[in-house]
């Protein structure tokens, strides 16, 4: 599966979001985020499949990265996993922000803030979007009722 599977519209000015996940859930995640935000532009999902060699996986990502606008971001599912090892390698080679801990809140935020802020601010916003999304609903409800 290639990254292009996930791209809805390409626009040369909007920074890219590259999504690196174990298996195909990154592709589904984009579709889920689009249920909330409508069509997302310049998003590429790269599912890492069990039988893939590292070279097979990296090549199509690099092809996209070579033409990526400034401010593009790599979003990775698991710190310490293969996707994260590869993103770290790519961020040392290309001028790009790479972060781990992908979730739907982070993806939506990344899509909204890309290109609008510097890297540190963007990381702060991505992190906050994730943290603010973690709630113990049961407890929240109980506290609200008492």
């Amino acid at each position: 599966m290639k990254g292009d599977d996930c791209i809805t519209q390409k626009n040369k000015d909007i920074p890219y979001l590259l999504i690196l996940t174990h298996g195909k859930w990154g592709v589904e995640l984009v579709e889920g985020a689009e249920m909330i935000c409508g069509n997302l532009k310049n998003i590429f999902a790269f599912p890492l499949m069990p039988d893939q060699s590292l070279i097979e996986y990296v090549e199509p990502i690099e092809e996209i990265l070579r033409n990526a606008p400034e401010g593009s971001i790599i979003l990775v599912d698991l710190f310490g996993g293969t996707t994260s090892n590869i993103a770290a390698l790519l961020s040392s080679k290309y001028n790009i922000l790479a972060v781990t801990g992908l979730n739907i809140a982070m993806l939506i935020t990344a899509s909204e803030v890309r290109g609008k802020y510097g890297r540190e601010e963007i990381w702060e916003k991505l992190l906050n979007s994730s943290i603010n999304n973690y709630k113990n609903l049961t407890e929240l409800l109980r506290n609200n009722l008492t």
Binding site: H22, S53, L54, L78, G80, G81, T82, N85
Partner: peptide, 10 residues
């Protein structure tokens, strides 16, 4: 393991 150190190991 071609991926060396990764999630399965950790």
């Amino acid at each position: 393991d071609e991926r060396l150190l990764h999630g399965q190991i950790l």
